[in-house]
């Protein structure tokens, strides 16, 4: 902001003389609190007007001073009086027996009524709690469905991507009926695996995916069988491949595939 331009705009004079509009006043107060040079200018203007006012100063009569301080003193006194006011507790007359009887009857009635109300309230409360639980459950289900839909959408996008080459891997002689597939992206070379049918392996073993590149097997990673194995999941990457295969290996995988334990394979 150009403070010089602001200073010479005349708005400060208008402010000091009290002719500025409400909006202008707020603006000057805000801007002068941000820019010290504007505040300085504002104070300098105020000082010259103060001196101008002093030039026509007139000593008021001494009685005005006395009256002001007398009024302020009495104001203060009335304030302290209000603060010091003490409320005394007065002993009331002892109530008669008949009044006590009615008081007891009223208390019992009140107790009964409040018990009923309490029961009703706690009943409503438990209804409210179970409704809240239902709402929570529904919300949980809804977010789960949304998440599942999101996953499916991503799978669809992968399948529809023209850069992804789909390779079906069918069961070998020893394991007929087994089925899995690979999506291989020919641009970024990433490999995705989906398992349609493979048996759950023993606890000490894991399946391993291989890419066959120029006749040599290249490790594409190990995987487990789970409920969502049919979804394409990212494995390794390879620039070229002629085939893909899955073998069953010891847990953690093997540097070379055990060809006798090959379950599925597919050529590109």
């Amino acid at each position: 902001m150009d403070t010089k331009e602001y200073i010479s705009s005349g708005i400060l004079e208008s402010y000091i003389l009290g002719t500025a509009s409400e909006q202008e006043r707020r603006e000057v107060e805000c801007i002068s609190s941000i820019y010290p040079e504007i505040r300085k200018e504002l104070d300098a203007l105020s000082v010259s007007l103060e001196q101008y006012a002093q030039a026509s100063a007139v000593e008021p009569p001494a009685r005005v001073r006395d009256k002001i301080f007398a009024q302020i003193d009495s104001l203060e006194k009335s304030e302290t009086k209000r603060e010091a006011k003490v409320f005394t507790m007065e002993r009331t007359q002892a109530p008669n027996r008949q009044f006590n009887y009615w008081l007891a009857a009223a208390s019992v009635t009140l107790l009964i009524v409040s018990s009923v109300l309490f029961y009703q309230l706690s009943d409503k409360n438990s209804q409210l709690i179970s409704t809240n639980q239902q709402v929570e459950q529904l919300q949980k289900e809804k977010s789960q469905s949304e998440a599942a839909l999101e996953v499916m959408n991503r799978q669809m996008a992968m399948l529809n991507n023209p850069d992804n080459k789909k390779v079906m891997m069918k069961g070998t002689e020893a394991h007929p009926g087994m089925l899995a597939s690979v999506l291989w992206n020919t641009q970024n070379h990433e490999v995705y695996l989906s398992v349609s049918n493979l048996p759950q392996p023993p606890a000490d073993k894991q399946y391993q995916l291989w890419a066959i590149v120029d006749g040599k097997p290249v490790d594409m990673g190990v995987f487990d069988i789970s409920a969502d194995s049919s979804l394409y999941k990212k494995m390794g990457a390879t620039q070229t491949a002629q085939a893909f295969a899955v073998t069953l290996e010891k847990k953690g995988g093997s540097p070379v595939p055990t060809l006798t334990a090959m379950y599925v394979m597919g050529q590109i």
């Binding site: 103060e50 006012a53 002093q54 026509s56 100063a57 007139v58 000593e59 008021p60 009569p61 009685r63 005005v64 001073r65 009256k67 002001i68 009024q71 302020i72 104001l75």
Partner: peptide, 28 residues
Amino acid sequence: YSSTLYGIVLKIVGSAEVAEDVLQESFV
């Protein structure tokens, strides 16, 4: 400040009697 303010009040109200009241009211 009273003399400066009183001088201003005198200019505005024009009467010393009223100006005294105004000054008293203002300081309270």
